[in-house]
Nucleic acid binder design. Structure first.
Lengths: 248, 248
DNA sequence: CTGTATTTGTCCGTATGTATA
DNA sequence: ATATACATACGGACAAATACA
């Protein structure tokens, strides 16, 4: 009656929509994960003890623990030891999300699924609109903060320190721009980018970078959106050229 | 001699830079993770069997397995059963990265660390530069693909189907824009956004959406970057207004 | 300060399921 | 069909950390 040209096995699998069986620990992890994502287990709430989870799921303690380890790797729960210990639903953490995204981008870059040039272009594509938004939404406090950070960059003497301070300066622009989604996504892209860049800072290039920072700040302060965008683009190109000198 | 106003405990902890002890399974996961990220365990390579890992780390099987579960939750390894089974380093997977980013954004949105408006603005901030890049880098094949997808949207009759097709249309623009970093990041943002949007498609709004798609396509085809950007902005605003009608 | 209870961390031994040769 | 190699799962036990009386 039912597609007689298929093998009996295939018919059964197809008509009943059978799925490959999943290990117990994965099923448990999936169920708990769903509860957390649906908000039925709110952040900070405590899961049952491992023994109770064993009872409810009808599995051994090893199985439950493996499921909990998966959730903790997802940054969905943390477990603490001791009398008042247990497994608790974590509050979402921006930093953890950024670190995870960074390693993912790094791996995708390593396997040539995304290229160096795309990372750089993505940075430009994020940072130009961001500096425009920052110009529109600037506040006296924000501008003052930028000035202080630019001074920190100039004061830094070693290359690693300079790099860190410079990233703070750029991050501050994202903060002033006021979009936390963009502010969250941009740093992992920079980080993945700079992992394959060789640092080549010289006293000469540092001076020109300081000058570019100043120009960006001035345009932001004056409310000159186009000028700020132009200055930022020039700055990013300069940063790229410093770190990847032409190799003839 | 050494900061005598601190408690002895604090002095010891400070001078020796002591760290909180980590469970064995976390240490093992960290070590293996580092090996994978450094590329010393290339994608596809096979880890030692659980028994051998027990021997090298000097721990029991339980501990090794919990560490492996953490790595598998990170999408760094997969394990298969059977004689030729074992634990293998995975090749980086774009889809897995996107899904993870989506759930992260969803959680951050739920805990008010990022707002609805920021998600929408982020979409605009990514999509306007993308449609500009797509216009510059358009190819006849790409434009033909856009036409086909726009026709698919018009042909779709149910609201969910329409939504899916429309996302395909937008995704195609990202593909033509040629930046896989942006193309990777945008969909999770949409998805997190649409989770809190109520679908409210009506026949009337569908017609205007189809018209906007056509206009975007025409500007891309003519190479009119500014026009394409304007049309896209108008379209995104329309999409927002449909789904979030003013609630007076 | 000293148990004591609670809970996770870790180990061992054993049995089962699964895929390959 | 049988053997082999591997992950999966169980149950029991003890150690270690933490809070609290």
């Amino acid at each position: 009656m039912n597609t007689p040209d298929l093998t009996p096995d295939a018919v059964v699998a197809d008509t009943l929509a059978l799925r490959r069986i999943e290990p117990a620990y994965q099923q448990i992890a999936s169920q708990l994960r769903a509860l957390i994502l649906e908000g039925r287990l709110p952040a900070g709430s405590r899961l049952p003890t491992e023994d109770k989870l064993c009872a409810t799921f009808g599995v051994s303690r090893t199985t439950v623990r493996e499921a909990l380890r998966m959730l903790s790797a997802d940054n969905l729960v943390i477990t603490t030891r001791g009398a008042t210990g247990g497994t608790f639903v974590t509050t979402p953490d921006v930093l953890a999300v950024q670190q995870r995204l960074q390693t993912s981008l790094r791996l995708l870059n390593g396997s040539n699924e995304i290229s160096h040039d795309e990372l750089y272009e993505a940075r430009v594509l994020l940072e130009i609109p961001a500096v425009r938004a920052a110009t529109r939404r600037r506040t006296p406090e924000g501008v003052a903060r930028l000035r202080a950070l630019a001074a920190d960059v100039e004061a830094a003497r070693t290359t690693p320190d300079r790099t860190t301070r410079s990233e703070d300066f750029h991050q501050a622009i994202f903060d002033i721009a006021g979009n936390r989604v963009i502010a969250l996504i941009a740093p992992p892209i920079w980080a993945a980018l700079s992992l394959s860049w060789r640092e080549r800072g010289s006293a000469h290039s540092w001076a020109s970078i300081d000058h570019e920072h100043d120009q960006i700040m001035e345009h932001i302060e004056r409310g000159d959106e186009d000028g700020a965008a132009r200055a930022m683009l020039k700055h990013l190109q300069e940063l790229r050229d410093i770190r990847r000198p032409e190799q003839s």
